[in-house]
Every structure is written in structure tokens, then in C-alpha cells.
Design a protein around this nucleic acid. Structure first.
Lengths: 246, 246
DNA sequence: CCAAAAGTGTTACCTTTACACCCATGG
DNA sequence: CCATGGGTGTAAAGGTAACACTTTTGG
């Protein structure tokens, strides 16, 4: 009984990465075929898995992430449950699930997670490709398998709204980063240009953003100051701001 | 197959109500007994249900709410899934579930919803008691069944954090309310006293909070102006504020 | 006339916004 | 020496926070 895949519950992960220009998401090839037909169509899906009977949901999502990226202890949060009885209803999707899981599949409830990774720490594109995984810029995402477009969209909106309340942007940047990189990150996630003088003033007031004795190298312009984010200091000094919309 | 209860997936609802003084939550008697033993213990649980095979998750939660309160079209949002393999592991919990559902139960993942209702529109306390349901003030909640204390706590935190971003407080107030009632509501949810002159100034600027040609009656003090919340106007005039914590 | 909550304004401070030019580096 | 992005300050406007007294009703 234990260590069996549970055919009723799955996890799917929206894994975000940032290359200093745009947000990307990690997607997996899905080859549509059945036991006796050749590949009839390819498309892309979110990384995911059925959950083992004795496995915690968070553990299951961590496992997917680890297998794919090689990383552990990564920012990972469940954000929504997709459980419409008809969400896996078309024949191709059902066949694919039944074939790949070797289990009788009817209704599958999926727990959607979003994850933020530092692209430079993840397996290289070559290694990812061996798992059929690719970084796709958000603007280039086409029709995905199952209801994964809907899940991706919801994950993006969660990221947007959480970014306003928590300093999670740093999960997407290398340990050392420039203010410009941070600003661009906020701009692409929020979808708004920001004034960089005002942005820098904001930064300057935050004691948990610490300028290093280091600058960029090999750039064809004045090299920028590097900073790091001190998470511990953030949580020590953070003050609840009781601003509410009403 | 259709219209069968799915023994793997349930919904649980944290239903909040406000009586102008404190937040309350709607809880249900659970009588612990088995086929051949009498009632051995009573405790309280969140209202919930297993999900039918052909039933949407939101529909399932609405069904629970309707059965209990008599209300439809109520504010109801999923906020977390609880799916630890050991969350229903003690014998009493397992026996109860198996006995009441008449299904073989092992692991159950539950989708937790929080709901905001106007206490004056819900079934009266008498009617509720016929379903074994009671409004319990948050401060008076003791040990609940299963992991329901944890679910309740998470629901409360979700309510707190959403209240800062969305005007959902009005779901807990009658259609006509006073500024003092609104302020008390915010105070008990946020857990902070607010300055009432400043609070009123804030209100005065909001065009979607509309003073009525009506005042309180039968109060032993100067009767207060009544207001209503115009949801449509709110969504028409709302402007995204791009404040972010960083 | 008393108790109880309603309602009202001002000031100091802080935050946000808008806006333009010189600097340091690589090629 | 040119192209590229790095880095800087000020002023006006708006929002937030702190604070005490008069008004209106029921009993």
C-alpha cells in the first residue's frame, strides 16, 4: 500500500526563473502517443507528478523540483487546487495519464505550486533538455497540456500579488545583484516601468539590502555596485504595516 | 460511478461571522461513537463534506454552506489544501470518518475554504442547533477534531491578509451599517485599535461608501449615520496601487 | 441631568512623485 | 571618443498620525 502512487491527487509546479530581461517558466515536453501508435503530437506541460500514498504534498512538489533542477530547499508554495471533475476530460489527456502512470485514472485533483529559482543555480539548459525541460519566456508560452495555461496564469497572478507583500523577488536573483537587475525584475513581474531614482532612494533606506565591496566586471559601462539581501535582518527588522485598502 | 462520494477528497469550511463585538466561527458537534458503543466523547469540528465524484470543489463547499446556513451566493474562497498523509491518523478520527461515510477511508486530502457571512441572514441559532451547529467566538474555541485547529488558524490568517487588499469586510456586516461597526470589525480582525477620527476621514474619501438617509434607532446615545457599500462602484473606480514592500 | 457613543479639524511629519545631467567603463 | 548604463538631489503634493472636545439621544 505504501509507496504507491495515488491516482487521485497530483502536484504541478510553476517554476519561475529570471534572466535579467524576462520571466521564464520551466516546461516539459509531452509526447502524445499510445502503446501501439507512434508519437502523434508534441506539446508542453508543467512539471508535475502524482503523489505517493505516504508522501506529504510539499514533499511531492520538492521531489519534482529536485529531479528537474537538481536543487533542494527552494522557494515553493502551494497556491491553488484545481479540481474540476472535467479538468482531465479529453481523450488525449486521459490516455496520456493512464499510459504514463499505468494506473486507472478518472478524476485527478492537482495542487498547484509556484516556485522561484535562481537560473544560474539550476541545471544547465543541456542537462534540462535531457529531461525534456526548457525555460520558456512567458511571452512565448503557447497552448499547454491539460489546464496548464490556466494554472500558469493563476501562478503568475499569485507571484504578482505576493511580491507586493513579501520580499520574494530575491529568490529569482543571484546572491549578488545590482539595483538595476532588481528593478527590472520588479518591472517585469508587476508589468510597470519604475522611476529608477525613486527606486534607488527606496533601496537606500532598507538596511537589509547590503552593498558589497564589489562591483560588476566586464561590462561596457560604469560597473554597478553589487548588493546582497539579508533575509535574517529583514525578518528581524520588518514592521507590520497596517495599511489596508478598505 | 457518478454521484458517489469520493473517499480521497473533502472540503472543510471556516465560516466567519461578526456580531459587532467579536469574530465567531461556525462549528459542528461531532459525537464520537461506533456502531456498538454509545457516545464516548463530544467535540467540535469545522463543517465539511467529502466531495462527490462529479462535483466541482467550489460547488461542494457551497453545498455545505447552503445546508447549514440556508444561504447561497456567499463569499467563499479556497485558501489551502491540507494533505499530510498523517492528518487523519488517530483511531478516533478514522473510526468516525469510516462510520459516518460508510466508505473505506485511508488518506483524505481536504480543501479548506473560508467564508464570510452576515450573521443576521443566517439561520437562527435554534435552527442551526438542529444541525448541531453553533457560533463560537474565536476566543472560546477549544480543541477541535482532526487538524481543524490548524485549518481555522490558517483561515484566520488568510482573512487578515486578504482584508488588507480587498474590501471583504462588508461581507460580514449587514447591508446598512455604521462607521463604528466597520471600524470595530477591522479592529478585531487586524487585532489593532484604530484612531476613529482618522478612520472616519479615510471613509469620507471613499465614494463607494455611501451615507444613507437613515440613522440608527433605539440606541441610548446619539444615533449614528448608516452607510452602505457599493461593490459595483468600488470595482469601477478602484485603482491598482503599486505599493510594494521590497 | 447623566451616560454613552457620534462626530468633528489642525498640525507635524513622512512618503511619493516628477524630473535632467554627469560619470566610469569597454571597445 | 563614443555608446552604454550607473548614479545622484530637490521641490511640490499628498497621505498618515497624533490628539480633545461638543453633540445628540434614551433612560
Amino acid at each position: 500500500m505504501a509507496n504507491q502512487l495515488n491516482p487521485h491527487v497530483s502536484v504541478d509546479c510553476v517554476i519561475f526563473g529570471f534572466d535579467f530581461e524576462a520571466l521564464h517558466v520551466l516546461l516539459i515536453d509531452r509526447e502524445l502517443s499510445t502503446s501501439n501508435t507512434p508519437v502523434i503530437k508534441k506539446d508542453l506541460k508543467l512539471p508535475g507528478s502524482l503523489v505517493y500514498d505516504d508522501e506529504d504534498l510539499d514533499t511531492s512538489a520538492s521531489r519534482v523540483l529536485k529531479e528537474l533542477t537538481g536543487l533542494e530547499n527552494i522557494f515553493l508554495r502551494q497556491f491553488h487546487i484545481f479540481g474540476s471533475p472535467s479538468r482531465v476530460s479529453n481523450k488525449i489527456d486521459l490516455d496520456w495519464l493512464t499510459y504514463t502512470s499505468k494506473l486507472p485514472i478518472s478524476r485527478v485533483v492537482t495542487i498547484a505550486y509556484y516556485s522561484l529559482v535562481k537560473i544560474d543555480e539550476v541545471n544547465s539548459a543541456d542537462k534540462l533538455a535531457m529531461h525534456g525541460a526548457h525555460w520558456i519566456a512567458l511571452d512565448d508560452v503557447g497552448n499547454l497540456a491539460f489546464d496548464h495555461n490556466e494554472i500558469l496564469q493563476a501562478g503568475l497572478e499569485t507571484l504578482r500579488s505576493r511580491l507586493r507583500a513579501e520580499p520574494i523577488g530575491f529568490e529569482l536573483l543571484p546572491k549578488k545583484f545590482t539595483i538595476r537587475q532588481l528593478q527590472t525584475l520588479y518591472e517585469v513581474i508587476i508589468g510597470q516601468k519604475l522611476d529608477s531614482r525613486n527606486f534607488r532612494k527606496k533601496i537606500a533606506k532598507l538596511r537589509y539590502l547590503i552593498p558589497l565591496q564589489e562591483r560588476e566586471i566586464n561590462v561596457a559601462h560604469k560597473p554597478a555596485q553589487l548588493y546582497r539581501f539579508d533575509k535574517r535582518l529583514y525578518y528581524k527588522t520588518r514592521k507590520e504595516n497596517f495599511v489596508f485598502t478598505l
